[in-house]
Design a protein around this nucleic acid. Structure first.
Lengths: 341, 341
DNA sequence: GTCAGCACTCATTAATCACGAGTGCTAATC
DNA sequence: GATTAGCACTCGTGATTAATGAGTGCTGAC
């Protein structure tokens, strides 16, 4: 859709003002604050056109205009310029994500989540990498007692996963050692999807003597690795109370109950075909968040997309700023992982 | 404080009715629903006495009475009879906590948390055991690459904890094996508090050859085990919207922001001198929850108190029922752990 | 094409009033 | 002396009304 220069300016003014004030924007306001050389009457005519085009809405006759979902979309795609954090701010972000004594994946991610919600003042969600998409760096069995084994899997994405196994027969250290060597040799470097019947029966052929223990172990480990285990971290859930759109109790409840359902949340923030996405209002599939917007970006570990970071908030969102922040943090995060994992 | 039989009856009626309706209770209501053989006027006199005693409050002159914090306390301590779940319900709880393919500590606890909030309709919180109070069942080092080691600690309480270690020198499998044997021999059965300088230097004396690697490892592992790592699981946070006391936006916000702060939450739900506790309103130390009540109970693993389960909700809480449920679930949980860990 | 002027719409706020639930007090009754 | 009927009084709630003002669409002049 091609819009004249003046219409673009007016749409921009309305989005900007509405994002700031949360009040419908009238023609007089625009004429006074944004476009001082046009009269309110002219602006009214243009606004009527923009409403016909589906880019603006009027809550009621005697109110100003607010952007429609399509209006926000047009603003994001065609008008807005991304506001990236300043170099100083980026340094600060780097600093925040690096100073930690223990560089575990979880801690870095937890910290990132908090950082995002602190900076943006929206609710942030970060998805951890999933074992399914990682490849195995090391798989080690630990004998805890005669019948208790713990399998520890370390992936190239830094995940450490423990699987508890009850063995049908007693195991001793030498058996464990043999199994360990074999499993590591055969499985390192593979992704979960690579592990198929061929690989398993190959290992099995080398392990005839312990076949019973082996099949107990391999099935539990395989099941456990196969399940979708991407976790989602949340921060700043109470930030929504700062926005008048959630003054209504039901609105707040709907939002929070969506947020509380980790399954839904994981789906929404899961990886996309693009490594950067904005969903505005009704563009969201889930009804509960049809009046929210979501911005998300992926981050990399070991040079492949591993998880996503994102925020969820009211449609009246400072897109230019939020998008700049998320893109920057996603880069910093990928860098941090490169260094520390 | 000794109360006459009639005053007890009236207090009970007021608490019961107020818990059910969330409306201040008037003398007429009591006379009609609870104590049909006394006139409203008499009840009014008694209510005035109960108010003088600090057990009742009046929101405003022309309203009925509501229980004060002390009124609830008197009810809980002296009047109420705990309502335990029926045997059938307990069977159902057992069933819910047992049917899981993988019996990991986390999963059982997560499920318990959900179960509590589902049954009680309040917000539930469950604290995991802490490594600090457990003893070490097995400590195993895994060599991931030349300089990357992961230490896996399994405790008697079923915790599996991973610690990532960057070694200053390259390590090979034989070194790891020696270290493993030694560490296991020296540390199994000890609690974190047992590990002091004596133990460490004892191990060190057996490990002169690898002293550099060893001290890198032991300090990181020790630090990591020492930190307070009890996690808190939450469920049913949006349940509060069902209760009119949180209709007010600020009330809801205060509650939810308290809930969001995992540090505060952990402190509040942390173990107590008693293995069962009720905190009503201003009995809570934290100002943010001065109009909430908390009920919590401990559960056992390996015959010692390991963590706590609890709920948080409005003071107007069905104490008799909630207490019965929590006590039962705490027992079932301890049983489940005995069987599966 | 632009814009001043004007009639019209409609959400918001304050003010007023009637209603009713509930109390405390007094005086009569058991 | 305890109980209770009767009554005046309090005060939150909800409905009604009216004034206000922000904003629009339309007309007609420049």
């Amino acid at each position: 859709m091609e819009l004249g220069e003046r219409k673009r300016k007016i749409l921009e003014a309305i989005v900007t003002d509405y994002i700031e004030t949360a009040e419908p924007v009238g023609s007089r306001t625009i004429a006074k604050k944004y476009l001082t050389d046009i009269s309110p009457a002219t602006i009214r005519n243009e606004m009527a056109d923009l409403e016909d085009l589906g880019l603006l809405e009027q809550p009621h006759t005697s109110a100003g205009r607010i952007p429609s979902d399509r209006g926000y979309r047009y603003y994001v795609d065609q008008i807005m310029e991304i506001k990236y954090p300043s170099p100083q701010e980026i340094e600060k972000i780097k600093y925040m994500l690096q100073i930690q004594t223990i560089n575990e994946l979880d801690k870095i991610i937890k910290r990132t989540t908090k950082l995002i919600s602190d900076i943006t003042k929206y609710t942030s969600a970060v998805l951890t990498p999933s074992v399914r998409k990682s490849s195995i760096r090391s798989l080690q069995l630990i004998r805890v007692s005669d019948y208790d084994i713990v399998a520890v899997v370390v992936t190239d994405t830094g995940i450490i996963k423990n699987v508890v196994i009850k063995s049908p027969n007693a195991v001793d250290d030498s058996k464990i050692l043999k199994l360990n060597n074999l499993l590591n040799e055969k499985l390192s470097g593979l992704t979960i999807n690579d592990i198929g019947l061929t690989v398993i029966s190959d290992i099995q052929s080398h392990m005839r003597e312990y076949s019973e223990i082996f099949s107990a172990i391999i099935s539990v480990v395989y099941e456990s690795l196969k399940e979708d285990d991407a976790e989602v971290y949340l921060e700043g859930t109470t930030n929504i109370f700062e926005y008048p759109e959630y003054d209504d109790k039901d609105k707040a409840k709907t939002f929070l109950s969506f947020i509380e359902d980790k399954k839904l949340l994981t789906n929404v923030f899961a990886e996309d075909t693009n490594n950067f996405c904005v969903y505005i209002g009704c563009e969201n599939e889930n009804d509960k968040i049809k009046d929210c917007s979501i911005v998300k970006a992926t981050y990399n570990i070991a040079d492949k997309t591993a998880g996503t970071i994102g925020i969820i908030g009211p449609k009246r969102m400072d897109y230019a700023r939020v998008i700049g922040i998320l893109k920057s943090i996603s880069n910093v995060l990928s860098e941090v992982f490169e260094k520390t994992l």
